[in-house]
C-alpha cells in the first residue's frame, strides 16, 4: 500500500526494463523456447523484483540482480511447465525425437547449445543476448567472475568440439 514510494523505488527498475526489455525477453525465450511463457517470465520476474525490492542489498548492481530474478523465474517456470504439459499423440511422436532437455529439434546448433550444461547455456545467453560483462554475469548467476570465464571457455570448447564432429 505504497504506490507513491513504489513509483520512486520502481524508477531504476523501470529505466532498466524500458531500456533492456528486448534483451530480457530474448534471454527468457532462449531459456524457455516459448515466447508467450518467456513474456510471462519477464513480467513476473519484474513484478517479483518490485515486490522484493527491499531484498536487494545494494551491494551489487541492480541490473544484475534483476537479471538473476528473471533468469530464476524462467528456470522455475520451465521446470513447472515440464510437469504439467499434456501432449497430443502427434506431439508425443515429435517429443520422442527431441532431446531430453526439452528443446525441439531445430537445427544442429540449437541441439548442441541445448545439450550444454545449464550454467554454460545461461552464461552464453547472458553474454551474447544480454551483452553482460563477466562481472554482471557472475552476479546474475551467483558465481565468481573467474567461474564465468571458465564456464564460457568450457562452453566454447564444447561447441567447437561438437561442431567439428557434426561437420565430419
Amino acid at each position: 500500500m505504497r504506490a507513491g514510494g513504489a513509483v520512486d523505488r520502481a524508477a531504476e527498475p523501470e529505466r532498466i526494463y524500458r531500456a533492456r526489455y528486448g534483451r530480457f525477453l530474448r534471454v527468457a525465450v532462449a531459456i524457455m523456447r516459448d515466447e508467450r511463457l518467456a513474456e510471462e517470465a519477464v513480467h513476473d520476474g519484474f513484478v517479483r523484483a518490485l515486490r522484493h525490492r527491499r531484498g536487494f542489498a545494494e551491494r551489487g548492481s541492480l541490473e544484475a540482480w534483476l537479471w538473476r530474478i528473471v533468469v530464476n523465474e524462467a528456470r522455475r517456470r520451465i521446470a513447472a511447465e515440464r510437469q504439467t504439459v499434456f501432449l497430443e499423440p502427434a506431439a508425443l511422436a515429435e517429443a520422442a525425437i527431441a532431446p531430453s532437455n526439452g528443446h525441439r529439434e531445430g537445427g544442429a546448433l540449437e541441439a548442441l547449445v541445448g545439450a550444454l550444461p545449464e550454467r554454460q547455456r545461461l552464461a552464453l545467453f547472458l553474454r551474447y543476448y544480454a551483452d553482460l560483462d563477466y562481472e554482471a554475469i557472475a552476479e546474475a548467476l551467483g558465481v565468481k567472475p573467474g567461474t564465468v570465464a571458465a564456464t564460457l571457455h568450457a562452453a566454447h570448447s564444447s561447441l567447437r568440439r561438437a561442431l567439428l564432429e557434426v561437420e565430419r
Binding site: R18, G22, L25, R26, V29, H43
Partner: peptide, 9 residues
C-alpha cells in the same frame, strides 16, 4: 533466438 529489440514490454 529471435531478436526482440523492437519489443517495449
Amino acid at each position: 533466438t529471435p531478436d526482440y529489440n523492437e519489443r517495449s514490454g
